[in-house]
Design a protein around this nucleic acid. Structure first.
Lengths: 193, 193, 193, 193
DNA sequence: GTATAACCGAGACGGTACGTCAGGTCTTGAT
DNA sequence: ATCAAGACCTGACGTACCGTCTCGGTTATAC
């Protein structure tokens, strides 16, 4: 019951957060600035979000929604992994992600509730997708039984994360796709047919 | 001229920062809290450091000083990489690092001066060490010419960074050493003798 | 033509206001608290009252209703004045009045509409009563012509008001009745028979 | 020790409070408005005052400082009382007082600390002065022993308080001086020589 | 042997932003 | 037309820290 939420405000706050994130980076965002740019006030912000980290998570979930129905399946492991990595490079190369990631992960380490939502809504679906692909490859006989899925994920994502966060490195380019897929295939025991 | 700095205060500030970092995490540290715990005042802090990120960098440089003279050289590439990774796992597993890394990297993205010092004093020496090892392996004929050093570093460090920052994963254990060394050797074209 | 007002809510709001007034004083009352304690909501409050001062005035008018028909008339001036003062001491000694008076008078200074209602509904009838008594005394020949009614009222009410509002004084006790009556009689030129 | 207070800010805050008090009345003053008009910010305000009531008390104490050395002594009771009442009429007629009094007294009822300071710094000296005058009159033989000082003060101040606070009355004029002095003299048992 | 310059603690400065409370209003679905 | 519920936007609250400055008072080196 009660007066319904003004959904335009939700969108305005997310948009404002996106702009400020791109302009100034995570640590420089303030609730005040987000609310002002969205044309509203702090109380309206706090009615919707618990704080900046939760707002950023919301933003990430909206901008990088995952479609669990439209799961990748190219028919063979190399093509599947390449598709995953193409998505991941795009994700980490997106300024929205690269500007917010470090600060957001810092918040995640401190706030257990935030961490739980992040894992469940953002990370788990992506890991589930990768796990599916690998298990399908096992089923097809492309790779041996008992694949180390977690290590495969580390190999796929770790290097991209590094390029996104560590200063003084080359950026994220498509060369990383082939390299990481190749390393991952080897780690999973894939032998080219 | 003038009264010399009280060097005990430098140490006291670093110790205070370390304690607070471990207790509350990067984003919760304040200059006020550090100065108070060190038994001094904010002006004394600002005489020594430009801000919290610079303090944390100082702390990391003190606690994880690198000895460029005592460079790793076990005589063969697998042993050298294993030595590097043993060090790296120890580094990322250290709570001081895992609690401060994300927040610190966020600050690094924003502050160009901080970034320059971090790259020069912390990252470059470590990358230099890895580069040396790989080039020695080329000279020994263990691996082909023109090794992709940056990609090798990505493979060595990326997965560890991921375990340190991303929530919901297994921690950093010694199993990662063998896995990452193996992947890196393969990526460098190493063939076991 | 519409659902009728729930008259129990009117009473519930007045009761809630009385309780809060006695517990916390005028300046600490909020519309929110009154509505909540009355078991209703702010909109219901605002349908009935323009604000806290109007609510308090309503409360005073209800609790200290004046019966213009049952006018004091003891037959002689001293007895009439004593009757008036007995009522007035009771009024000012009532915690409901002493807790709300200062804050309410402050609101009255600011809000002209409120002032008009307060004067007309609360003050005027009481002054009218006092005026009646004095003019009857003139008619009886107890005091000279052209009595200064306003000054008499000041003498009757001023000291009680002072005891009610100023801190650090003795409270309102019955000794004030005799003293104020005596002073007023003298001011009106009364000579004991 | 420490950086000394900027005394101009103290004065600016008091001036701002005075202006706003005269323009809008006690209940409409906010810390925000006072600080803004004084050209500073809320934290600077709270470094000096505990709140609006304390600020107003400070203002009253500054604007109506009492000089205990320059005590009234005209040599006879009627002249002394007249001098007191001349001061008091001036006090209550001052818009600063009449606009702030009701709201301030409301705050005084709620806040025990404020009340203590108000009584000690503002009321007590004035009452002490009145007491002195009356006791001197006893010593001179102008009035009987054991004068009821409190009742005399009620008679002197009560009517003025009433004119200042109650709406719909004549203002404070000099006629009140003679009337109140006359009533007080009578109450004290003074017989004209 | 005494300036002088940089430090020390303390605590103020002018500020930004915090997260909250309450204001008075409006909208909804139901009575 | 009223009800409760609960949203809306506004404005102010009192607080925490920010980064800086001004003190009165130590130290030491450099004159």
């Amino acid at each position: 019951m009660g007066r319904p939420r003004n959904t335009e405000l939700d969108a305005a706050l997310l948009d404002a957060a996106e702009e400020l994130l791109l302009e100034r980076g995570f640590s420089a965002i303030t609730v005040e600035a987000v609310a002002t740019r969205a044309g509203t006030t702090r109380p309206a912000f706090y009615r919707r979000f618990d704080g900046i980290p939760q707002l950023v998570l919301s933003l990430l979930l909206h901008r990088f929604a995952i479609d669990l129905d439209r799961v990748i399946d190219c028919g063979n492991l190399p093509a599947d992994l390449e598709a995953i990595q193409r998505d991941q490079v795009e994700l980490f190369a997106n300024p929205l992600v690269s500007r917010s990631l470090a600060g957001f992960l810092d918040a995640v380490q401190t706030d257990a509730d935030l961490r739980a939502v992040f894992v469940q809504e953002f990370l788990a679906p992506r890991r589930y997708g990768a796990g599916m692909i690998i298990h399908r490859a096992v089923a097809r006989g492309e790779i041996p039984d008992n694949p180390n899925v977690e290590w495969a994920c580390d190999l796929l994502t770790g290097p991209l994360l590094m390029r996104a966060l560590m200063p003084g490195l080359s950026g994220l380019d498509d060369a990383l796709i082939g390299q990481s897929v190749s390393s991952t295939l080897h780690a999973l025991g894939y032998r080219s047919p």
